[in-house]
């Protein structure tokens, strides 16, 4: 699996993500700069990691979505390259139109860092094949703007196409997301965004380890 992590100014979880990808695939991902005009390689997976790209000024993910390299990322996604956006990466994916909906400020208006229960709503994706359908596992969140919102039509579509991949489970929705949505895919299933941080739940040191299965799933699919 040849993977790349896009670095924006203000990104701060690129090393966490690189560690997880290396652990699962054995290969160090490339770190690529948001101002690059093109992708230098044919990547199997492009990751938009967590952080505060452009300080979260204006609106989370809005400025990053207009970075030069994002045009290439969108083009790659349309060609079927797998794209994973975590936290700020998820926000950038909705801002760039690759995923529907928007991430609003958390319902209690505060940044929240805690471990929550997630359920696997669709294990038939490249990102979740190593889970059982309905699996529930613990995974941390760390965000200020993770309150997923979409219109009733959009939600209906997401449900009809099995695009809701992760939900907050056990009444542990930390941010007010509609329908407890924690992560979704695009219609084709090659683009996934989620607010929780599976890259911070990969080894005993983290306390929780089942986030690792997302990266193992990608390696199983992409080699």
């Amino acid at each position: 699996m040849k993977s790349a992590i896009v670095l924006f100014p203000g990104t701060n979880r690129e090393n966490d993500m690189a560690r997880a990808l290396k652990m699962a695939s054995g290969i160090e991902p490339d770190i690529i700069w948001h101002k690059d005009q093109q992708l230098e390689k044919d990547y199997d997976l492009i990751v938009l990691p967590g952080g505060f790209s452009f300080g979260d000024y204006l609106r989370t993910g809005a400025i990053a979505a207009n970075s030069p390299l994002m045009k290439e990322v969108v083009a790659a996604a349309n060609k079927g390259v797998h794209i994973l956006g975590v936290c700020n990466g998820f926000q950038i994916l909705t801002e760039s139109g690759l995923l529907p909906g928007a991430l609003l400020r958390n319902k209690d208006l505060k940044f929240i860092c805690k471990s929550v229960s997630l359920s696997i709503e669709n294990n038939q994706t490249a990102f979740t094949s190593q889970f059982e359908q309905g699996d529930i596992f613990k995974c941390p969140v760390a965000h200020h703007d993770g309150n997923y919102f979409a219109t009733p039509d959009q939600i209906e579509n997401l449900e009809a196409n099995n695009q809701i991949i992760f939900k907050y489970a056990n009444q542990e929705n930390p941010n007010g997301s509609i329908s407890d949505i924690a992560g979704i895919s695009n219609e084709k299933g090659n683009v996934v965004g989620l607010m929780p941080h599976p890259e911070n739940a990969i080894e005993p040191l983290n306390g929780e380890t089942r986030g690792r299965a997302i990266f193992d799933s990608l390696v199983a699919k992409l080699g």
């Binding site: 701060n12 979880r13 090393n15 966490d16 560690r19 997880a20 967590g50 505060k110 940044f111 929240i112 860092c113 805690k114 941390p140 760390a142 941080h197 890259e199 911070n200 990969i202 983290n206």
Partner: peptide, 10 residues
């Protein structure tokens, strides 16, 4: 402390 990111850097 739940308002502080205590996990970043992994």
């Amino acid at each position: 402390w739940e308002q502080y990111d205590n996990l970043v850097q992994g």
